[in-house]
Amino acid sequence: MQTLEIQRVHKSFGSLKVLENINLTIEKGKFAAIVGPSGCGKSTLLRMVAGLETPDEGTVQADGKVIKQPSPERMMIFQEHALYPWLTVGENVEMGLELAGVSKEERRKRAQEVLKTVGLDGFYNYYPSQLSGGMRQRVSIARALVMDPDVLLLDEPYGALDAMTRLTMQNELLKLWEGSGKTMLLITHDIDEALYLADQIFVMSARPGKVVQTIDLDLPRPRSRHSQRFGELRQEIMQLLGLEE
């Protein structure tokens, strides 16, 4: 399993400063979340951990090694499900294994197992266009899980889903993570989502993106969204983001 370390990271796109002096550490096996308004560079930060972007200054490390390119150890789940429409559910899930040269029977076996854990048993031969938004996002989670990564990077995975599906998916995500030992890093602009899921929340402000507060959560799971502590923390984050006086 991997510990993620981001040290003194700066990043600009042209003259636009996106990230300024970001420092954060996520211990292995922890569920961390980054909350912030759109444009605060949180997606850019996540893409650096995935190896899709490089910082202008500073380092992004996984277990002491500098991240230079994507690795099957760190799987990313994208905002839009980003499934390949020309592949079936099963073929989408098997894509990473196929690229790695895993045999057909082995691929199929592992894909079937993972589809079962995300509750999509029997959808192997469907095309993504035949599924609902929530089911598609489950497939994309299965596609990441089948690689058995140490780190799961989630880029606003439930942003496009309706409120009810979102709550169901959050519970499912917790079940997948608990006891797996995987390090999770979730990007979201949904404060409640972060509070419900994470051990540790980094609150970011925008233009340029900075971490303004790190909150360690001591709430036991399953958490109630209506508990007093939950409400206090929600208020604290909203104040930090300037959404509430």
Partner: peptide, 22 residues
């Protein structure tokens, strides 16, 4: 679609695999 390319890169695709699979 850029995301389609990035998904494949994250899954470990080489240049040739990107061409053939995406």
């Amino acid at each position: 679609n850029r995301t389609h390319l990035e998904v494949a890169k994250v899954l470990g695709a080489t240049k040739g695999q990107l061409l053939r699979k995406v």
